[in-house]
Structures are given as structure tokens and as C-alpha cells.
């Protein structure tokens, strides 16, 4: 299944079987994500959406098949992968003694952004976190912590964004703003792979959906995926 421009394939999963030792969740799955593609992974709870993403990222070993990044076997340790693939965790741990702004500073500087101060300011503004910039993580609500994780994913440069239910715990206003921004990213040739339960996300910024309802899953237009989620 090809999702995105053939001429610039970023991630290619071939005959990928996902699951845990002794328990196959699904497969074989074949997927291609090209530059500027927008693919949503949908399905019921427990269908293996996050497992698929974790396997693609190399965080979980696959039970079969291969995953390639730009034509080479995916290596999450490689410099190129770390430079170009931005992954948002569904939940994350924080440094107790660092403020919100310092967390973002660390990410921005770690990616070599020269104008990191202004970028941190813009992300704080985008996610309505200006008032919490000097707060410690323990002083944030769960939704604000979620915004911090998303801000850290978006502050850095990337060719592909991998998001795991980014809509969780976000209010509708921020959600829509985020989807608009993701749409702009795609126009800028940044690919997006997102696990989601939100039809609005599929309609706003993705063009295809991968429904995990069978061994091999099925690729469909984002609008159909949104309808499936609304059923």
C-alpha cells in the first residue's frame, strides 16, 4: 500500500507482523509513507495501533517483516533518524526541577536550533502555555503536560511526525489549531503518521486512514476513516 508520493518514500514497512513473543496482533502489513503524506492509524482499542507505530519506530521488535527508513533498514539510533523523525509519546516523564520553558529549551538546543529562544516563545504561545512557562511539571494539569509534550515534538525540525493520539486531553480550540498547523507541515512536505480516534483530525490534516480491523488492515480515504470512527 502506498501512501504518499512514490518518488520520496520515507518509511516502508514490508510484510510486517506485529505483536509480542507468542502473541501475534496483526500482520503481515505493508505500508509506505512518502514525503508530505498524512496517514491516520485507526481501529478499536486493543487492535494494535500503538503497537504498529512502536514497531515501525523500532521500539518494539517485529515478529516478521522489515521496516526501512529512506531505503535502509530502520535504525532508531542513527543520526539521520533522530534528526528527521519526530515522535510524540502518548505519556512522558519530566524533569522535576526543570520548568516548561527549560524543557523546550533542551529540545530546541539539542536539535541545534540557533534561534531557540524565539522558537520556545512561539511554541509557548501556540499551546497557550505562556503563563506556565516558569512552572514545574508538578504544577501543570494533565492537559498542560500533554501540550508540553506536543510542543516539544513540534519545536524541532523533522521530515516526518509520528503522533500517538495527539488529541487526547486537548480542548477543541487547541485541537483545531494543531490540525491546521499539521496541514501546513504537510504542504511543506513533512509526512505525518498519527494514531487517532478523532474524525476531525482525519478530515483536517490527513488524507488516508489505515484501519486495523483485520490481519492485514485496510487503507482507505481519510473521509471514510472519519465515517468509520463516527459510526
Amino acid at each position: 500500500m502506498d501512501t504518499g508520493q512514490n518518488q520520496h518514500i520515507l518509511i516502508q514497512a514490508s510484510d510486517l507482523t506485529i505483536g509480542y513473543p507468542g502473541r501475534v496482533i496483526c500482520g503481515p502489513i505493508s505500508l509506505e509513507i512518502g514525503a508530505g503524506a498524512g496517514l491516520g492509524v485507526i481501529g478499536v482499542n486493543g487492535s494494535g495501533k500503538s503497537t504498529l507505530v512502536q514497531t515501525i519506530l523500532g521500539a518494539l521488535p517485529s515478529l516478521g517483516g522489515t521496516v526501512a527508513y529512506k531505503g535502509r533498514e530502520l535504525n532508531e539510533n542513527s543520526l539521520e533518524f533522530r534528526q528527521n523523525v519526530a515522535v510524540q509519546a502518548s505519556d512522558g516523564a519530566f524533569f522535576e526541577e526543570l520548568t516548561v520553558a527549560e524543557h523546550l529549551e533542551m529540545t530546541a538546543r539539542g536539535h541545534g536550533l540557533a534561534s531557540w529562544k524565539s522558537k520556545v516563545g512561539r511554541e509557548l504561545e501556540f499551546f497557550d502555555l505562556q503563563d506556565q512557562a516558569q512552572n514545574l511539571p508538578s504544577e501543570l494539569s494533565s492537559g498542560q503536560r500533554r501540550k508540553l509534550l506536543l510542543a516539544a515534538t513540534l519545536i524541532r525540525p523533522a521530515q516526518i511526525l509520528i503522533l500517538d493520539e495527539p488529541e487526547q486531553r486537548l480542548d477543541v480550540k487547541i485541537r483545531q489549531r494543531l490540525y491546521d498547523r499539521l496541514g501546513e507541515y504537510r504542504r511543506d512536505s513533512v509526512a505525518i503518521l498519527a494514531v487517532t480516534h478523532d474524525p476531525m483530525m482525519l478530515r483536517s490534516c490527513l488524507d488516508e486512514a489505515f484501519l486495523m480491523d483485520s490481519d492485514q488492515g485496510q487503507l482507505m480515504a481519510a473521509a471514510h476513516g472519519a465515517q468509520w470512527l463516527e459510526r
Binding site: 543520526l79 539521520e80 534528526q83 528527521n84 519526530a86 524533569f95 526541577e97 526543570l98 527549560e102 529549551e105 533542551m106 538546543r109 539539542g110 536539535h111 541545534g112 522558537k119 512561539r122 501556540f126 513540534l154 519545536i155 524541532r156 525540525p157 523533522a158 521530515q159 498547523r181 501546513e184 507541515y185 511543506d188 512536505s189 513533512v190
Partner: peptide, 24 residues
């Protein structure tokens, strides 16, 4: 909002000389 996309051509080939523990 500035976009964060980075083309392959502009991707630095060297790792960034930064120690994140310096913030701590």
C-alpha cells in the same frame, strides 16, 4: 507560525555538540 519541516539537503550531517545535562 514558522514551519519546522527540514529538507534532506539542509539536514546537518554531524551530530549536535550539545550536552542536555547542562540545563540541569
Amino acid at each position: 507560525m514558522e514551519r519546522s519541516g527540514l529538507s534532506a539537503e539542509t539536514t546537518p550531517r554531524e551530530s549536535i555538540a550539545y550536552d542536555p545535562s547542562q540545563v540541569l
